[in-house]
């Protein structure tokens, strides 16, 4: 089978089929507005924590939706929960709850175990 050379080094590819997207599904079930994100980045622009550390809610959102849970888990605790993002999100994503559920879920699964 042609692997397009991806096996040569540590794969950079997002392996959509292998990745565990159950965390994203769980978040979407508990907070349906999670699905509404269009990655505009307003949340990250206004973010209080983002000024200080490498934290972007938009990035976390996309990582979770692709099943890159480990990468998301690394950064997710940096949120200060100030809620500015809720006030600017043009899609009405309930950002704080998304983050809250994601944190709880990822802390239970350590980011990589299946739920």
């Amino acid at each position: 089978m042609n692997k397009f050379g991806f096996t040569l080094s540590v794969p950079r590819v997002i392996d959509y089929d292998k990745n565990d997207r159950s965390v994203a599904d769980l978040i979407a079930a508990k907070e349906p507005t999670f699905r509404l994100c269009i990655e505009c980045g307003t949340c990250a622009a206004t973010c209080t924590a983002g000024n200080f550390t490498d934290f972007s809610l938009r990035e976390i959102n996309v990582l979770l939706r692709r099943g890159e849970n480990e990468a998301a888990a690394e950064k997710i605790n940096r949120c200060m929960l100030c809620g500015k993002c809720i006030l600017v999100c043009p899609r009405g994503v309930n950002t704080r709850n998304v983050l809250f559920i994601a944190r709880e879920t990822l802390s239970k699964t350590n980011g990589h175990e299946r739920l």
Binding site: G41, T42, C43, C47, G50, N51
Partner: peptide, 12 residues
């Protein structure tokens, strides 16, 4: 102005 350069993945 504050924005995120979403393609670079960093605040701008």
């Amino acid at each position: 102005i504050k924005a995120e350069d979403t393609l670079a993945g960093r605040p701008l």
